[in-house]
Amino acid sequence: MARAWVFGDDLDTDQIVPGRYAPFMVGQDRFYQYAFCDARPSFTKEVRPGDVLIGGENFGCGSSREYAVAALRKLGIGGIVAKSFARIFFRNCINLGIPVVESAEAVSLVRDGDPVTLDLAAGVLRTPNGVAVLRPLAPFAQELLNAGGVVSYLREHGDFPKVR
């Protein structure tokens, strides 16, 4: 079962990976080891592939830096459930193949460290305190995610999905 990592509102990309640890500062093989290094120092030691991030409003706001999302992908984050997402962060996640889904109640239902199951097919997040309903993703975004992101989708199909 996945562990839930719970964050509040307005989590910005500087908290995910601070600018001073950008790939061009510390290298492609190291930048992701600094994920949440200020905000949650134990994160990279304890996170396991498939773990789920939970957040409030405006998750991923701030700079457009894609390496924040690249770091989460590198660490194998299974998905992010938040009340709402900042727009560039949302796109970056879909493009890099990380499921990002909105849910009004997840953040109040889940406590940090809870075991949770992100069931995208059923459209729910199962938690010890009940089930949070997820807002369905647009079929277009779902197609990109199914392929593992926009790059693998385009490599396979040569063009954007023909669904909206």
Partner: peptide
């Protein structure tokens, strides 16, 4: 509109992008 690096790479390759 501002976008991340992969979106920009796709735009450079195709000359198109997706928008809501």
């Amino acid at each position: 509109a501002g976008m991340g690096a992969t979106d920009i790479a796709v735009a450079l390759a195709l000359g198109r992008t997706w928008l809501r």
